[in-house]
């Protein structure tokens, strides 16, 4: 009837892993944000798949909340990036600190 849930779950896990890998290895903050989105999407996929297998609407409802959270996170995250950029362009480069490990 439909492909087994396992396929989607594995797909989601792999997507989650890819997102995680990107998040820990990329330098650019924006791309790291995108990787976060990948991870949240993997979560959504997992929720929907479980929702189908369990025949329970709760999973789909949770996806809705995850999406809202993703939107809120991005808003603030990009706000932070913009703030950094503003401060960077207004202050001299020497004052920039580098964050240690």
């Amino acid at each position: 009837m439909n492909v087994p849930a396992a396929w989607y779950l594995v797909l989601a896990a792999v997507l989650f892993g890819i997102g995680g890998y990107g998040l820990v290895t990329r330098r650019s903050a924006l791309i790291m944000f995108m990787c976060l989105e990948l991870m949240l999407n993997a979560v959504n996929l997992t929720f929907v798949t479980f929702s189908r297998t369990l025949s329970d609407i709760g999973g789909q409802a949770s996806v809705f909340f995850v999406m809202v959270v993703a939107a809120a996170e991005v808003t603030v995250g990009l706000g932070i990036v913009v703030a950094i950029f503003r401060r960077r362009s207004t202050t001299s480069v020497d004052e920039l600190s580098e964050m240690k490990g």
Binding site: L23, S28, A29, L30, A71, L78, V82, G101
Partner: peptide, 27 residues
């Protein structure tokens, strides 16, 4: 909405052309 916002910020800050907001990678 979300990716458009990304693109907005990218274009607005010119991150694609100039140096971006870099952070130390975690690993």
């Amino acid at each position: 909405a979300i990716v458009v916002l990304f693109l907005f910020v990218i274009m607005f800050l010119g991150v694609d052309r100039r140096e971006g907001v870099d952070v130390q990678p975690l690993v």
